[in-house]
């Protein structure tokens, strides 16, 4: 456990130094990965599959905010779908417009889940994004996850039915439209949508309860909720979600979420402090859980060859003895300055 904490500390120190560059690099890589994944899954149109175009779009995403990635991804998907026929393109555009109108207005600003949900679903780790989102983000992120699920099934349908759509004549628009719409809004999609939304809501609710190790408890509960929905869906609606793959993917999601939690939010529950105090307007109940941190000695033990000058920065490693800190006094002082 302390190894993860120490690695997390080092990563945070490095990120603190080079955050601008790292943010841009992450945006570029995520955009590139998403665009090439769309190219690999759909890839019907040579223009929208051109690697140079995708590279240019990824560079633009590096410069703009995170919102640019789902926007460009949507444009690429719509562009690819028009290669299968005007009617298919119009239906794809209509689905994206419905998502934009009904859901995008209520989702958080950066909408990272809209991009990550289809990616993780494609690789079989469907529960990973809702679990992590429930631990870290606001409840309104459930709309982002829902949009991601719909987009995933839209892409899966276009990919699966591309041969049939190319075979059917343009005049058989009834059959073509039915293939796309019914394939996207299938019972499997509905079960997955409800399952992932429920996972996010339940994980978020458990996290908000605030008991010790609530986040660690929320992760496996989220995994169980997803599996429960999948099994119920299979029993009631006869969905074609492979149970074994769902089980393996869920276990992988839970493990990955646990590791991410250790890296991103290592809390030391053994040093929890509870306090009560009041000011003119409110009575406060405060629970403070310190973040677990590697000490200077532990870092030096890991890297005995590092000199004093090579360490990330002493200010990053200075740690106050928590027993000597009067949290109540410091909190009162900070509130007086509001």
């Amino acid at each position: 456990m302390s190894t993860f904490t120490q690695l997390g500390e080092k990563m945070r120190a490095v990120y603190g130094r080079y955050s601008n560059g790292i943010d841009m690099a992450v945006k570029f890589l995520l955009a590139l990965f998403s665009f090439f994944w769309i190219r690999g899954t759909l890839g019907f149109n040579p223009i929208f599959s051109n690697p140079v175009l995708l590279l240019v779009l990824a560079v633009l995403c590096m410069i703009f905010s995170l919102t640019a990635i789902p926007v460009f991804s949507a444009l690429l998907i719509v562009g690819q779908s028009f290669s299968l026929g005007l009617d298919v393109g119009v239906v794809t555009l209509a689905i994206f417009l419905v998502i934009l109108i009904l859901f995008v207005r209520f989702i958080p600003e950066d909408a990272l889940e809209v991009v990550l949900t289809p990616l993780t679903m494609f690789f079989g780790f469907a529960a990973l994004v809702p679990i992590c989102t429930g631990l870290k983000r606001k409840i309104s992120a459930v709309f982002s996850v829902a949009c991601g699920v719909v987009i995933y099934y839209l892409m899966a349908t276009l990919s699966r039915e591309s041969k049939n759509l190319k075979t059917l004549a343009a005049s058989d628009y009834a059959d073509r439209l039915q293939l796309v719409v019914r394939g996207t809004f299938s019972s499997t999609m509905v079960v997955n949508l409800l399952a992932l939304m429920a996972v996010l809501v339940i994980v978020h609710a458990i996290r908000r309860l605030g008991f010790d190790y609530c986040m660690q408890a929320a992760i496996p509960v989220g995994g169980l909720v997803y599996l429960m929905f999948v099994l119920l869906g299979d029993a009631v609606l006869g969905t074609d979600i492979p149970i074994a793959a769902a089980l393996i993917g869920t276990i992988g999601s839970v493990i990955a979420a646990w590791i991410l939690l250790l890296f991103l939010l290592p809390l030391d529950y053994s040093k929890t402090e509870k306090m009560e105090f009041e000011d003119d307007d409110y009575y406060y109940y405060v629970k403070a859980i310190p973040k677990a941190a590697a000490t200077k000695e532990e870092i030096r033990r890991l890297h005995p060859d590092l000199s004093e000058d090579d360490e990330p920065g002493d200010e990053d490693l200075d740690r106050v003895d928590l027993d000597e800190v009067n949290f109540e006094e410091r909190l009162e002082d900070s509130l007086k300055n509001l």
């Binding site: 109108i101 628009y173 039915q178 796309v180 719409v181």
Partner: peptide
């Protein structure tokens, strides 16, 4: 109206 159009498209037959 978009949802209506999609529902009609999916059940047009």
């Amino acid at each position: 109206f978009l949802i209506l159009a999609l529902a009609a498209a999916g059940n047009i037959n």
